[in-house]
Design a protein around this nucleic acid. Structure first.
Lengths: 120, 120, 120, 120
DNA sequence: GTGGTCTAGACCACG
DNA sequence: GTGGTCTAGACCACG
């Protein structure tokens, strides 16, 4: 895995993890790779992986079980979906609106383009 | 200038050039740096710069004068604007719509978020 | 195919290609010869063929499909026609006018010659 | 001098000769290069040069003086002009008309383009 | 000097 | 396989 510089690495790891879930690689209830295992696999510090897992746990994607490791929650998929929605509304969409402002594009044009998109 | 790996270098050069125009660094009628000069400055092959200039020329931002060099066209600024608009509608917007589809987000929600954005 | 020296090879390839379309050898939707195949066939560098295809693509005659090849666009025929018209008005006609100036020939004489041509 | 293959060499020599007159290299009354001299200079047979000189003599550009050689006629310049006009009306113009027919361009469009040309 | 064309050869992503 | 990008280096016409 390659890391870009514009986003913290732990977030990139979490995103990667969630993309794998959406792809169906891991399923709800499955055991997540151990922190140590993953840190070696990705060539990053265990702290970084732990931070990524913390993030995923905070958002209900995985849960820790004492002495055994992390497991995908039942509801992991929908949790990922909710997170994506959140990112979409908090980050992607404002960036788009900003671009609209710069280009002088109004909402009507977007709506019209959307109707075209649905047809095509 | 640093190049990222996710976009061809020649496009990055062209984009940088257009950003400089929008910033007002270069004005309509100005002479662009010569192909060789710029290629040395950026540490890339002359072909790569030429390809960037070709792209800009094709889109009406600069024009070649044989034996003299490239010059910003009269209308360079609006040409850049038109290109940005085109990219927005042909690339950014379809990506947005695709994401909307994946997340099950409708146009009404976008419009609502836009109203919030305008207020905030 | 033989190349003359007064026109760039890539333009001669593009012109040949368009002539073949007008002759009906290739039809809209057909696959164009692959870049490598054609470069070997013509004994030129792949770049030169690519430049010809770039030119044709820029003018809406062919379109690239990633990993598959180039295909004649729907509308390739009319695109070729439009290009020919453009060349006529931007190149042939100004050359004619320049010659008229040198020879002291006016538009009335041209119009008269045209009437004769239509009769003959 | 390089010869192209689409026109007889003697005509190319004659054309070259006339272009030199229009450029002012040779003047009316000047002695033309001897047939032998020119044939060596151009690397062609003396017959070919003679044929070119015949052509030029037929059209009043040069005249033979027994025992001395060929000389530009008084009126050589206007003779060249007349020849150019003839070529223009007999060759260039019909080719243009043919192109107009193929492209579906009418005389009105040419006249309009001409008005634009005179302005620009 | 300037842009423009061409070659030889490498390496990449996509399917 | 397909197109696409990039380099190194040569040579050309124009001014």
């Amino acid at each position: 895995m390659e890391f870009s510089s514009d986003k913290p690495i732990y977030r990139q790891i979490a995103d990667y993890f969630m993309a794998e879930i959406l792809r169906g690689v891991w399923r709800e209830g499955d055991k997540a790779p151990s922190v140590r295992e993953l840190s070696v696999g990705l060539g990053v510090n265990t702290h970084t992986v732990l931070k990524a897992y913390d993030y995923l746990q905070d958002h209900g994607v995985i849960e820790a079980r004492r002495g055994t490791g992390y497991y995908l929650t039942p509801g992991a998929c929908s949790a990922v979906g909710a997170l994506r929605r959140e990112e979409f509304f908090d980050s992607s969409l404002p960036a788009l609106f900003e671009q609209m402002r710069l280009l002088g594009v109004g909402m009507e044009e977007i709506a019209e383009a959307y109707r075209q998109f649905l047809k095509g």
